[in-house]
Design a protein around this nucleic acid. Structure first.
Lengths: 187, 187
DNA sequence: TGTACATCAGTGAACGCGCGTTCACTGATGTAC
DNA sequence: TGTACATCAGTGAACGCGCGTTCACTGATGTAC
């Protein structure tokens, strides 16, 4: 059932973006080959025509997810705005198109090199993005890394906890913590 | 092959503590029934005598892991000490006997009620523990939740990243962030 | 204390199921004349 | 422009494998006399 080149490219893209969503929703090991291709309206065989293996699709899907969720965040003009969006209930409740780090960090240590490397890029990108939004007088990569850790931790825990009140408090507490005046340069 | 009551209780305990380790190392879905019981020197059938299902074992193992890793941390007398231990390379490199939150948070949203509830207890325990270590003049549950989020996020990312330098920096940056003077009460 | 028997922790074969992957095949696409 | 043919994206059956769970069975333990 050969299809036109344009159609094939379109199908490939549909698999990648369906995978980007499903991996974040169900985890890398939780999203199966059939579910991934079915979500793109195809059968599992086509995955192997395009990518060769589930792992190679995963690497590409991660890259895609990274780009698209970064793009979504790029409209934030201040750190406060960025943080408010990141720690919103909307982000918490829709992992499928949210932050790759919060969705997949736990599984990454058990993944292959390509995937780990791609994930590491995601961390560096987030660091740079946050650093670029910090007020000029206290801009620092280390500060930014600590902020990223707080964001990822708070969102991950807010998703895991079964008490809606505690979940909201986690988001709010982290927001306040980051918004608070910066640590004074040590005396 | 009936065994004595003491032996049976001992076997049960061995399964629970092997599970507490393996679940943290491989994830809840990554640790299989055969691996879990084999690590305790038994066969899979014995899991069903003692627990009835993998999920019920998981709930018990989480509870066990929670208690034992909390006990391990209880010797910390100051927040600085607690944080230094939590964000140590030793903790990062040995997830099997480390923090339940950092090891499993990502999988928890897809688990059953018992497991999610147990995990929520872990978050509350950590919050209380951190709050109790904060200096009296700024003790607050919200502050503590933000600190817990930073700890969990930094450790999880430090484990995931494939660049040892970035990993060490994540731990160090979070340590400094938490150690820094507290946010001044807003003017 | 010694004997007969019920109990039940643990074993291992077997179950159905979904996983990731392979492969012979299909048939429209793209190309060569 | 029309015809003949090679290409190859996508299909669906089949693969071996490991999963969680069930169950008939074993044989030492614990109990009743």
């Amino acid at each position: 059932v050969r299809v036109s080149k344009e159609r094939a490219a379109e199908n490939r893209e549909r698999i990648v973006s369906a995978a980007a969503r499903l991996f974040r929703e169900r985890g890398l090991s939780g999203a199966g080959v059939d579910a991934l291709t079915e979500a793109a309206g195809l059968t599992h065989g086509s995955l192997y025509s395009h990518f060769g293996s589930k792992e190679r699709l995963a690497a590409e899907a991660l890259r895609h997810a990274l780009n698209s969720s970064a793009a979504r965040m790029n409209s934030a003009r201040t750190l406060e705005d960025y943080v408010a969006r990141y720690l919103s209930e909307a982000h918490r409740d829709r992992p499928g198109d949210g932050c790759v780090m919060a969705a997949l960090a736990g599984e990454i240590p058990r993944q292959g090199d390509a995937i780990r490397h791609c994930f590491t890029d995601a961390v560096r990108d987030a660091m740079n993005r946050v650093a670029s939004l910090e007020p000029g007088d206290r801009r620092s990569d280390d500060e930014a890394l600590a902020v990223v850790a707080t964001l990822v931790g708070a969102l991950t825990l807010a998703r895991a906890v079964d008490d809606p009140e505690l979940s909201a408090r986690l988001l709010e507490a982290a927001r306040k913590r980051i918004a608070a005046d910066p640590p004074a340069p040590r005396a």
